[in-house]
Write a protein that binds this DNA or RNA. Structure first.
Lengths: 336, 336
DNA sequence: TTTATTTGCGAAACCGTTTTCGCAAATAAA
DNA sequence: TTTATTTGCGAAAACGGTTTCGCAAATAAA
């Protein structure tokens, strides 16, 4: 019933607590014989050390924080797997905190982290994050931080991103090559790095191909599904509606398909569609979806690897360690 | 740079640490005036209490553990949202631990939890879990546990499930009504409660409608994607292949669609297909997918609510608190 | 006025570890 | 044999909070 602790163990073995502790850490001070006795008794009594006591004394928690907007999202859940794979190897635990795209949540989470709950942070900012003092506070506290995917560009630390500009360019150029001349862009937030970089790629592709677009083709979606549906509907039933669309985030897939179905628009006949997405079902959609697929797992892994490097090597600076891992464009039925 | 602690605060205010602590907890012993001074200085110096120190003294961590097989899965990620929504309200944090369907991982995670890392556990067992001593150990340690979805039937504690039997029955009956007379069942593990209950519903429906099925129509999938593809292929290109399939888990969706495409089988023409799934994209697949959709968010919420009840009310027993929340069947194109 | 009670705070123990330091006994070197 | 050194362990002080208890001063009751 009651959890047994190191003192109980010491009593049981007629040893001091320090000896027990040292035996567990395989200290040279302790004889092999004693070590074995300790380990065996620990197993027998089902002793599990209290991690918080260790954290307290050792002044590190062996936890890293993951701050992301959502978990119900293919990109983020794969990234979690990447992060977790290296954390596990290092004997660390991950604390997954969800902002649900709220700035206030994000700020509160980072604030809490300053109490020593985690030794480092890997994050992807919320759509509402237009200001970064809460992040600077965290770093001023000595906590190493690595961004992945959605970064704060003004903050000097490692950022693991994908080639958003090039991908936006490639997606748009593909639509142009498939014959689209009125191409819409669905962004997610005006202050979000990825959305902006992808948008710039889109713009550049249009410019390079001499396509003059109406700004009405550019839609900034929100976090409200209903609101997005209205915006999409407006865009797609306007006179002179686009005949191609690039969407910057996965969660717009279903809304676009649905709205097209409701309006009787055929994909790819009336509208060609490319989406940034890690959906496993992309290939079996109706029609199958052309995607820019991000290296989610690798990005998570890389972010974690860097964070641990900075945790392990004192003096290691994250400022010059940013990495860009390319996404892959996969052509499918939605742009045939 | 350095984290400031309660001692620094005490020094700054010329008060004792106990006074500071009491001020934070709004103790009646402390005057309003002092409380305000403490709060204000804490804000100014950006003081954040160390949660591990509190945990240690208070003997509870204010963390609950979530043990699930995967996070890259619609059902589990939605369930996490449900759990998190109530944990947040209670001022608790969630520690999400992934077993990746490995029994050994599951056992290690539960073992670690016994050191006081969490105050209670919400879990869905791995496909490999055929034995439950590790769970009994956890409970013997005094940790309350609530199962959701994938339960261990032999363990006496609250289990939040959905109506697996009825859903399996309903899905199968639907296929029969749509004209199928050779109906396959794709399970995920022979020792998994949900898979078995859904299978029993399937069996009962066949019996009730006087359909005699070959056991070759029953396929137990594994955790190896390639292996599953082989099994599926065998099933679907056998002479006298099934003309209907019920799949017990979401992750079989893409393999089934792909294999059908490769073999030139038309859904729903050659094969009708129903899947237990929370995929948001079910409605825009080719063809759209008839699903049994589980109340994932609600199940998570309910599990968490029960766990907190047992954490808050001493003497509250979880043994008689199991709940069944019905799933909904949604007919779509794959069974037209 | 004397006694009882309340108010506001501080000292110190405690939570379960880790780590430093000290110290005997055993062994090796001189 | 005497003096270093090594080996194996224990006492006690941290880590950063919370909580119990005690104690003056202020206020209320007698």
């Amino acid at each position: 019933m009651k959890n047994i602790n190191i003192k109980d163990l010491a009593r049981e073995l007629n040893l001091s607590v320090s000896t027990i502790s040292k035996a567990f850490h395989d200290s040279y001070e302790i004889s092999e014989d004693t070590k074995n006795r300790v380990l065996e008794t620990a197993r027998r009594l089902n002793y599990v050390p209290n991690p918080y006591a260790s954290s307290l004394r050792g002044r590190r928690s062996k936890n890293i924080g993951i701050v992301i907007p959502e978990v119900a999202d293919s990109f983020f859940s794969l990234a979690i797997n990447g992060i977790e794979s290296v954390a596990k190897e290092k004997g660390y635990h991950v604390l997954i905190c969800l902002t649900h795209e709220s700035f206030e949540n994000e700020r509160n989470i980072l604030k809490e982290f300053q109490g020593g709950r985690v030794d480092g942070v890997i994050m992807s900012v919320s759509t509402e994050t237009s200001e970064s003092s809460h992040i600077l506070d965290l770093m001023a506290n000595g906590l190493p931080l690595v961004f992945f995917d959605r970064v704060c560009e003004e903050i000097e630390t490692a950022k693991i991103t994908t080639d958003d500009f090039e991908s936006g360019y490639k997606a748009t150029e593909h639509l142009i090559q498939q014959g689209c001349d009125k191409i819409g862009f669905l962004g997610i937030s005006k202050c979000l790095s990825i959305s902006n970089r992808r948008f710039e790629g889109y713009q550049k592709a249009l410019d390079d191909h001499g396509i003059l677009n109406d700004t009405k083709y550019i839609v900034h979606c929100t976090n409200e599904t209903e609101q997005n549906d209205i915006l999409l509907r407006e865009l797609l039933q306007s006179s002179n509606r686009p005949n191609g669309i690039v969407a910057a985030v996965e969660k717009l897939t279903t809304p676009v398909y649905r709205t097209c179905a409701e309006l009787g628009l055929n994909i790819p006949g009336d509208l060609k569609f490319v989406c940034f997405s890690n959906l496993e079902t992309a290939s079996i959609l109706n029609p199958s979806l052309s995607t820019i697929t991000q290296p989610a797992f690798e990005m998570g892994k890389m972010a974690a690897a860097l964070l641990f490097k900075s945790l392990e090597k004192t003096g290691f600076s994250l400022t010059k360690e940013s990495q860009v891992i390319p996404s892959s464009f996969i052509k499918r039925g939605s742009t045939e």
